[in-house]
Computed example of a mutant assay.
Amino acid sequence: MLYIIGSMEVGGAEQHLLNVSRQLVLHGWSCEVFALDPDGPLRAVFQSVGVPVIGVELSPAFIRVLAHPKLISRFRLFLAVPKLIFYLWLKRPGIIHFFLPAAYVIGGVASLLAMHRPRRFMSRRSLNLYQLEHPFFRRVERWLHPRMDIICGNSVAVMRNLQDEGVPDKKLRLIYNGIDTLKFNSKISKYKKREELSIGEDALVFVMVANLIEYKGHIDLLNALSEIDSSLPVNWVCLLVGRDDGIGEELRKASKKFEMADKVRYLGARSDVPALLKASDVGVLCSHEEGFSNAILEGMAAGLPMVVTDVGGNAEAVKQGVNGLVVPSNSPHELGKALLCMVDGSLRAAMGRASEARARELYSLDACVESYERMYLE
Rank of each mutant, 00 (worst) to 15 (best):
I96L: 05
N330Y: 03
N294M: 05
F121E: 01
S123I: 02
D245Y: 12
G352K: 03
R160W: 08
S231E: 14
K257Y: 04
F78L: 07
E14H: 04
L36R: 11
I72F: 03
N235P: 00
S48E: 13
K171L: 01
V264A: 11
A269E: 15
E165C: 09
A269I: 01
Q23H: 08
L132T: 11
L276V: 14
A269L: 15
A35Q: 06
H27P: 00
R119N: 01
S21P: 06
Y215A: 02
R92C: 13
V53E: 04
L113Q: 05
I175W: 08
E373H: 03
L36Q: 10
Y215F: 03
G28A: 02
P60K: 00
A254L: 04
D262V: 05
Q47G: 04
L132C: 07
Y104C: 13
I188V: 12
V234L: 14
G40N: 12
P233Q: 09
S126G: 13
C286A: 15
E14A: 04
K70S: 06
L58H: 12
E57A: 08
N19F: 08
V311M: 15
G6F: 01
I106P: 11
F99R: 13
S123K: 12
I199F: 11
P328I: 00
L204E: 05
K253T: 14
G153L: 03
N128E: 07
V10T: 10
L221C: 05
L365M: 07
V33G: 08
S371E: 10
V20N: 05
W89K: 15
K171W: 00
M351S: 09
N211G: 11
A301D: 15
F136H: 07
Y130E: 06
N235Y: 01
E227I: 02
K278C: 13
W143Y: 08
A210W: 00
L129Y: 12
G303I: 14
G324M: 08
M300A: 10
V369E: 09
Y372E: 04
S73I: 07
V140H: 03
S271K: 05
A210I: 00
C341M: 11
Y363P: 09
L277Y: 01
R125G: 12
M1T: 05
K263L: 00
R194H: 03
C31S: 05
L251P: 05
L127W: 01
D272G: 12
M148R: 10
C368N: 11
K83I: 11
G50F: 03
E356G: 05
